[in-house]
Computed example of a mutant assay.
Amino acid sequence: MGRYTGPKGRVNRRLGVNVYESNGAIKSLERKEFPPGMHKRRKKPTNYGLGLAEKQKIKFYYGLRDRQLNRYFNKARAIKGNTGESLLILCERRLDNVVRRAGFTCTRPQARQGIVHRHFQLNGVTVNKPGIMVRPGDVITLRKRPNLQNLYKHIAEGVTIPQNDWINFDESSLSAIVTTLPTFDDVGLIVDANQVVAFLSR
């Protein structure tokens, strides 16, 4: 199955968290703070159901497929320390997430589309893979094309930049520098990482 392209508001309502940041999806959860569908009395969720919901938060928030998430999980298990925290830090280091966190775009899907369409450069090299892992010292810039500069300058003016201390974004030059690796405290998603680890370890 490919990437999810259905109604984003339904996902936010199902998970009870704004994993999608578009205005319509956020308003959908604000208007109806209950899951979609026929609202009969619901059974108490099982441990499997709770773990699945937490996993889905990560999957939709970062725009991952199950295979990609499992690959990150296997990498996280090989890293010393808390596996759940390492998993989320790996997801935070994705290029599309950094482009969003810096303030180039309003949402992660928008950032991913821009990267795939070769709008961005990493250390002076044009890239088209949203899953590239950034490192401290990496510089993210736009290609030197007037139409792209004008487009993203207009977008950046209306973007609320998530608070973070590991990315420096210069709005005047439309460039971002990764100053250090993110920590677990920099993760903006509210998720129970331990439940995700237990679910993916099954």
Rank of each mutant, 00 (worst) to 15 (best):
L15R: 02
V17T: 10
V17P: 00
V19S: 03
Y20R: 01
E21R: 13
S22K: 09
S22W: 04
N23V: 14
G24F: 10
G24C: 06
G24L: 10
A25V: 03
K27L: 12
S28P: 01
R31A: 03
K32F: 09
K32G: 01
E33I: 06
E33Y: 05
E33R: 14
F34H: 13
F34L: 11
F34I: 12
P35Q: 08
P36G: 08
G37K: 11
G37H: 11
H39M: 14
H39S: 10
H39V: 10
K40V: 12
R41F: 11
R42Q: 14
K44T: 15
P45W: 00
T46R: 12
N47K: 13
N47D: 14
Y48D: 12
Y48W: 14
Y48H: 14
Y48A: 09
G49S: 11
G49P: 04
L50G: 10
G51K: 03
L52I: 06
L52A: 10
E54F: 00
E54Q: 13
Q56E: 12
I58G: 01
I58V: 15
I58L: 15
K59W: 05
F60V: 00
F60M: 04
F60C: 01
F60H: 15
Y61I: 03
Y62L: 01
Y62K: 02
G63R: 06
L64Q: 06
R65H: 10
D66V: 10
D66A: 08
R67E: 15
R67A: 06
R67L: 11
Q68D: 07
Q68A: 06
L69W: 04
L69E: 04
N70H: 14
N70C: 04
N70I: 12
R71N: 14
F73A: 04
F73K: 03
F73M: 07
F73S: 02
F73H: 02
N74Q: 13
K75V: 07
A76N: 06
R77L: 13
K80T: 08
K80V: 08
G81V: 07
G81C: 08
G81H: 07
N82S: 12
T83E: 09
G84R: 05
G84I: 02
E85Q: 15
E85I: 09
L87C: 09
L87G: 05
L88Q: 07
L90S: 10
C91V: 04
E92G: 03
R93F: 02
R93K: 15
R94P: 03
L95V: 09
N97R: 00
N97H: 09
V98E: 02
V99R: 03
R100F: 15
R101E: 00
A102T: 04
A102Q: 04
A102G: 07
G103P: 02
G103A: 06
G103Q: 04
F104T: 03
F104S: 08
T105V: 09
T105C: 12
C106R: 12
C106T: 11
T107M: 11
P109M: 09
P109K: 09
P109T: 03
Q110W: 09
Q110P: 02
R112D: 07
R112M: 06
I115H: 03
I115D: 05
V116Y: 03
V116F: 07
H117S: 15
H117A: 14
R118K: 15
H119L: 10
F120G: 05
L122W: 06
L122S: 08
